[in-house]
Design a protein around this nucleic acid. Structure first.
Lengths: 233, 233
DNA sequence: TGCAATATGAACTAAAGGTTCATAAAATAT
DNA sequence: ATATTTTATGAACCTTTAGTTCATATTGCA
């Protein structure tokens, strides 16, 4: 159990308590129990999909009684709401805080950093990211509206802003279709990233495989985006 | 109900009967009823996910009694097996038949055709493709092995072969990382294609949106892959 | 007309999963 | 030390879901 993430989460949890998404009881829990519950919810959601989350399984996974989860979240749906909201807040914050650095960097370097941002994630961060990714591939319309759409838009707009900066600095051809190109780079980033975050996706995306490891993909990614494949004329 | 696809499916169905995946009864059904059942299975699987398929819903959707489905497929799992096998065979055949044309074309043209291949799909083809795509985003390991892995590998190898052809014809810089680059183009094709095939994915991939329509994405795709974004030196 | 093949869907069954609540334990206050 | 509040527990309850069966009806064919 990773406790290092605990302090960072406390402000979010206090906020969620104000909004009635968790009870006071949960906030006052000792760190270990609190993290066990959060990880159990995220892991369960990542494995079975957010909407298929099962409160009994979560209880067992966290080493806690079902009844306790009811005193924390009120209901299964309340538990899901909590996880969803926590995830959105956390991810939005994360992208917001990276933004200025990424925009200021030369595009190829910024892209590298953006793509490999997840080299050293804590267990909780990884859990939240996986939770988001799982939600993203589900067709549930409520999840799409509440998590996927807002976070994905933030991500795409970040790519777009990086590209705009690069154009302003003369690092990019002026004749590219800014809007469509930033959408494509956003999409390609997703494929490259998610095949690492949710390994089963790599069976489809096939981003890595054989002796093509993530590092090599990163190089090819930047090379492809910067220079394409046509011979230099 | 589209009956135009019926003749094309008959050979597959006869084959599947030999392998015990459907009963003789099903093969001898009139075209309309047969297609109604197949579409019902595929649609149900596309909406709820292949493994979450529900035999009672399929029956209702097809306008057929549950008991009849049991005389056709033996069990719910048998029904799923049938759909899975039909899907793999059909998709593999399709890619195999396109292959020679795509390889022979100049790369940019081949890529265009590959990406827009689905402009005029029949209802059944679309159903099979959606079935495959839904399976691809599920973490079920049996589906991964039986459908996703083989079909995705076929797709990626096709991209690779197109790229090899292009290199041999001198249309491509010799210094690109062939293996990694074909994986990236494969991935980008998936993102671009699936955001159209399963529209809810576009909330995440955000390939189209605003005044960026599929046509424009296609242009930007080819431009990005061929020339990248850096200024021509 | 009768036999074989097929269709039907109510009824059976099992499992899954959300929720409650009486009881116990722990923490806090008096 | 005792009372009181807070929290933890998990067996039991209940509803829903979904796979399967089968007696009965229907259809096609010899």
């Amino acid at each position: 159990m990773t406790l290092s993430d605990w302090p960072q989460l406390q402000s979010h949890i206090a906020e969620l308590e104000q909004e009635g998404l968790v009870t006071r009881t949960f906030r006052r829990l000792d760190a270990e129990r609190q993290m066990a519950v959060i990880h159990a919810v995220l892991d369960e959601a990542s494995e079975r999909g957010p909407t298929a989350i099962n409160i009994k399984h979560v209880a067992e996974r966290a080493g806690v009684a079902v009844g306790s989860l009811y005193t924390y979240f009120g209901s299964r749906d309340g538990m899901l709401d909590f996880a969803v909201t926590l995830c959105v807040r956390y991810m939005s914050d994360a992208f917001e805080s990276f933004r200025p650095y990424l925009i200021a960097l030369p595009f190829d370097q910024g892209l590298r950093l953006y793509l490999s941002g997840g080299v050293e994630w804590s267990q909780t961060q990884l859990g939240l990211i996986q939770f988001f990714a799982r939600a993203a591939y589900h067709s549930d319309s409520e999840l799409l509206e509440r998590i996927v759409q807002p976070v994905a838009t933030t991500m795409r707009e970040l790519v777009r802003a990086m590209l705009e900066g690069a154009i302003a600095r003369g690092e990019v051809r002026p004749d590219i279709d800014l809007d469509a190109t930033s959408r494509l780079i956003h999409g390609l980033s997703i494929v490259a990233g998610d095949s690492q975050i949710l390994p089963y996706l790599n069976a489809y995306f096939q981003i890595t495989g054989g002796d093509v490891l993530p590092e090599r993909v990163l190089d090819a990614f930047v090379a492809l985006v910067m220079d394409g494949i046509a011979p230099r004329s």
